[in-house]
Simulated scan of single mutants.
Amino acid sequence: MFKKIKYIQLLLTNKNWEHLGDIAILKSELFGAKVSPAVAAKLQAVEGYHPPINLEILSQYPPGTLGREYANHMQINHLQPFNVSPALEEIAKHNVFALRYVVTHDIFHVLLGFDTSYAGEIGVLAVAVEQNYSQSLKIGLWIAQCLYPLLAPQQRGEIFANFKKGKELGKKADFLLSYRFEEHWKDSLANLRTSLSLPPV
C-alpha cells in the first residue's frame, strides 16, 4: 500500500514533460501490468534498455529510414518520445514490459503502417494482443472493440478492418516487443519490415 501511495504522489508531482516515460511507468506500477513467464523470458534481452530518443537528430536521417519516418510521425502528430529519467531507473528495470511497451508504441505505428486514429490504435493493440504481451492488453482490446465504433462511427469499417489486419500481422511477425529498434534508426524501414517478417505497407 505504501508503494502505491508513493507512486500516486510521484504521478501528481511529475512536471517533467521531457520524461513522459516516467508517467507511463508509474501508471503501470500503480495498476499492476503483468506478463506471463514466457513473455518475461523474451524480454530479458531488453531489460533496463531505454536509450534516449532525440527527434531532432532522427529527423536528419535519410527519408525511408526508421529514424526519419518515426521522427516525421511524432512531429506530424505533435507527440514526444517516452523517455525515462534516471530517477525511475530501478522501476523501469524490473517492469520491462511497461517500459518497452510505452517506448515502442509509436515505433509500432510507423513499423506497422497504422495511423493514430481510433482505427490505427486498435490495429496496434491487436498486434500486441496477438503476440500475447499481457492479459491487461486483452481486456483493453475488448473494451476498444466495444467503445471505438461508438466514439468514431465514421471509422467503424476501418476499425474492424484494422482489428483483423492487426491480428494477422501479430501472427506473422517476429516477437516485436523485444527488438532493439533504437539500434536500427538508420536502417531502411522497408528492409526492417522484411527482416521482422512483416509485409510491405
Rank of each mutant, 00 (worst) to 15 (best):
M1N: 13
M1H: 14
K3L: 14
K4D: 08
I5A: 13
I8R: 14
I8K: 13
L10H: 11
L12P: 11
T13V: 11
T13E: 11
N14D: 14
N14W: 07
K15V: 11
N16W: 04
E18R: 11
H19P: 05
H19S: 10
L20I: 07
L20D: 04
A24G: 15
K27E: 15
K27V: 13
S28H: 10
E29Y: 11
E29Q: 15
G32K: 08
A33T: 14
V35N: 05
S36Y: 03
A38R: 15
A40V: 08
Q44V: 08
A45S: 14
V46T: 04
G48K: 01
Y49S: 07
H50S: 09
H50K: 10
P51M: 02
P52T: 00
P52Q: 03
I53E: 03
I53L: 06
I53S: 00
L55S: 04
L55E: 02
L55K: 03
I57Y: 01
S59M: 04
Y61G: 05
P63H: 08
P63M: 07
L66D: 03
G67N: 06
R68W: 06
E69L: 04
Y70L: 05
A71D: 00
N72K: 14
M74C: 08
M74S: 07
H78P: 10
N83S: 03
N83V: 05
V84L: 10
V84G: 07
S85Q: 07
P86T: 03
A87M: 09
L88P: 02
E89K: 14
H94N: 15
H94D: 15
N95M: 09
N95H: 12
V96I: 11
A98F: 01
A98T: 08
L99A: 09
L99F: 00
R100Q: 09
V103Q: 01
V103E: 03
D106F: 04
D106E: 08
I107S: 03
H109A: 05
V110S: 02
V110W: 02
L111H: 02
G113T: 02
Y118H: 15
Y118F: 14
G123Y: 06
L125W: 01
A126L: 07
A128L: 03
A128S: 10
A128P: 00
E130N: 06
Q131N: 06
Q131E: 01
Q131W: 02
N132Q: 13
N132P: 07
Y133N: 00
S136G: 13
K138L: 12
I143W: 12
C146A: 15
L147H: 14
P149W: 06
L151S: 13
P153I: 13
Q154G: 15
F160H: 10
N162D: 04
K164V: 04
G166R: 00
K167F: 05
E168K: 11
G170A: 03
K172A: 09
A173I: 04
D174W: 07
F175W: 01
F175M: 07
L177D: 00
S178P: 08
Y179D: 07
F181V: 03
H184S: 05
W185A: 02
K186Y: 02
D187Q: 09
L189C: 03
A190F: 08
N191F: 05
L192V: 08
R193A: 07
T194R: 11
S195R: 10
L196H: 00
L196Y: 00
S197H: 08
L198C: 06
P199G: 06
P199A: 08
P199I: 00
P199F: 00
V201A: 11
V201T: 13
